[in-house]
Design a protein around this nucleic acid. Structure first.
Length: 562
RNA sequence: UGGGGUAUAGUGUAACGGCAGCACGACAGACUCUGAAUCUGUUUGUCUAGGUUCGAAUCCUAGUACCCCAGCCA
């Protein structure tokens, strides 16, 4: 980073160390990171923290960041996830250029290095079953004991390992272990498994291998091969760092630094692969891209912008403390960006018919409306005004308190960009429900300003009854009712905390005509309601919008206080 | 109860022996053709107990709490 602004900005502990490394000319001052997802699920906002960290560090320090799929377990991984993951990272705004790598491409090199360790007497083939291995490993407080196969000759190990590779043995019959220390207080160092036999077809290497490397053995090698300088991962791998270092030291190859940071936790959200999968498979949501999911594809469909996600990640910082970030911060970043970038439009979700009694029948006036007050370059558009309109049901109250700035019989309000109107009466059906309200308008207030300078307290959004489009609007709330969904009563599953009202569909909505050609993914602010985006289910015949997030609403807050 | 890690406002995150700051939230007000945005102000914090020091969030000692590790998962 060369600008002075960033010199003043406090650095997180990782950037501070990298700055120091550059100063000390470690790796010739080179910075090279990587994001290594396993293609066994979709990326979520927690992964965004990790990949934004890796890509932005590379960018800031003039280095590079690789995308590498850590595909060492063929039984859990799929090409479909590989494609989705690449799409997600690109969408958030990062580019790995020509540096797309797969751990599976390094299998031969890893195998050769394993042979080298065997020759050096640092690895052996073990015939213990998985269960026996567990017994030999000992416990947290008791040391393990040496495998009976620990002292096999190099020749025998070489022969057996070769035959493991050639497919002679069934799954689980033998494995290759590193010879380290069965008494180590760090359980990861008690002769960890390097290879297991898996007669499974790999999504990239097919049936070439029936021997697959374990994470601890593979990961450092992958980093080393790619010339990574800083291998950033989450906290639970801190216990594995001695092993990461041990393998690279034994091989005497390029040795990146592994550094660990706390993963993201968000209130009202689950982040584990297992739980996300359960939501999808259990039919609790419509899929990985359900707008209530914290997946990148879910956020995208919900209407989040890439900038809002990047900014959020920047704001939460990087540290080693376990933390739980308030969803409100994510939503703040969302609104912050959408406020600047979203065109305004008028839409009515719960329509209430308004008849302007003194407005000419059949007349249509095209009024000027500002597209984005935050952005003068966004220009203006025309909205049609007619005798019959819709306003929001919440914007009318029969017995209105003084603090209610909206419409009530005898009160005057402004219809945005249109006229001042005064309510003269209401019509109810047999059940006492208000079916329509009657108003008069003041022709002198056209455009929304009164020439006599009189003020109104309230401005309402509206839509012409005849000159508008019908739409479906999907209103989302938190998927969970509990800040920490895994906290349940009576040992229930986290799904017990699912919010039954997380999705409400409003079929009878009306939007401005200017939305006729909207495309999936288009984002808008529906004035006074919130930010919305067009869903992929939307078509010219049936418009469908998702509520991304509501506007801050001090009126409902005031009501809740009472 | 072995080992590894972490403790700063409600939530995050700075301060690297020298005035505990910033963001989000909450609260109050100003402004407003969005009860939005914007602006202003207020509130709340160094895990505990000792020690070193002119001076400690920071160094030392002893505690406490929480997280991670006993997959042939990553």
């Amino acid at each position: 980073m060369e600008n002075s602004e960033s010199n003043n900005a406090p650095l997180d502990f990782i950037r501070a160390e990298i700055t120091e490394d550059i100063k000390n000319n470690i790796n010739d001052g080179r910075v090279h990171t990587r994001f290594p997802p396993e293609p066994n699920g979709r990326l979520h906002i927690g992964h965004a923290k990790a990949f934004c960290l890796n890509f932005s560090i590379a960018e800031e320090f003039g280095g590079k960041c690789n995308l590498r799929f850590d595909d060492t377990n063929p039984v859990k991984e799929e090409q479909e996830h590989v494609d989705a993951i690449m799409e997600d990272i690109k969408w958030v705004g990062w580019d790995w250029e020509d540096r797309l790598y797969f751990a599976s491409d390094y299998f031969q090199q890893m195998y050769d290095w394993a042979v080298q360790l065997i020759k050096d007497g640092k690895a052996y083939v073990c015939d213990l079953t998985a269960e026996e291995t567990r017994e030999y490993r000992g416990t947290l407080t008791k040391p393990g004991k040496l495998s009976p196969y620990h002292n096999r000759s190099v020749e025998e190990n070489l022969d057996l390992f070769e035959r493991m590779k050639s497919g002679e043995f069934p799954d689980g019959a033998r494995c290759l272990k590193a010879k380290i220390d069965m008494a180590s207080p760090n359980i990861n160092m008690r002769d960890p498994v390097m290879y297991r036999i898996l007669h499974a077809s790999h999504h990239r290497s097919g049936d070439k291998w029936c021997l697959y490397p374990m994470y601890d053995w593979a990961h450092g090698l992958e980093d080393s091969i790619e010339g990574i300088t800083h291998s950033l991962c989450s906290l639970e791998f801190e216990n594995h760092r001695p092993l990461y270092d041990w393998f690279l030291d034994q091989l005497d190859v390029h040795h990146p630094k592994q550094r660990e940071f706390a993963r993201l936790n968000l209130t009202y959200t689950v982040m584990s692969k297992r739980k996300l999968l359960k939501l999808v498979d259990g039919g609790f949501v419509s899929g990985w891209d359900d707008p209530r999911m914290p997946t990148i594809s879910g956020l995208r469909r919900r209407g989040y912008s890439p900038a809002s996600i990047r900014n959020f990640v920047k704001k939460i910082g990087i540290a080693k403390t376990d933390s739980l970030i308030d969803l409100a911060l994510l939503e703040h970043c969302l609104r912050d960006d959408l406020n600047e970038t979203s065109p305004r439009v008028m839409a009515v979700i719960n329509p209430l018919k308004v008849i302007i009694d003194n407005y000419p029948d059949g007349q249509v006036e095209e009024l000027d409306a500002i597209n984005n007050p935050q952005d003068p370059d966004a220009g203006t558009r025309k909205v049609p005004f007619t005798k019959e309109l819709y306003i929001e049901q919440d914007d009318f109250m029969e017995d209105a308190p003084k603090k209610f700035f909206r419409l009530s019989v005898g009160r005057e309000v402004r219809l945005r960009y249109a006229y001042f109107v005064t309510c003269t009466g209401i019509v109810k059906d047999a059940n006492g429900r208000i079916t329509e309200i009657h108003c008069t308008y003041d022709p002198a207030t056209k455009g929304g300003d009164a020439p006599d300078g009189r003020k109104v307290k309230g401005t309402l959004h509206w839509v012409s009854a005849a000159e508008s489009l019908k739409a479906q609007v999907r209103l989302y709330e938190n998927l969970f009712t509990n800040e920490t969904p895994e906290n349940t009563e009576n040992d229930q599953d986290f799904t017990a905390n699912i919010n039954p009202d997380s999705l409400k569909i409003s079929e009878n909505c009306f939007v401005e005509k200017s939305l006729a050609d909207t495309k999936p993914g288009d984002r808008y602010q529906f004035e006074r309601l919130g930010y919305f985006c067009t869903d992929p289910d939307s078509s010219k015949d049936k418009l469908v919008f998702n509520r991304t997030v509501g506007l801050r609403d001090t009126w409902v807050k005031m009501q809740k206080q009472e």
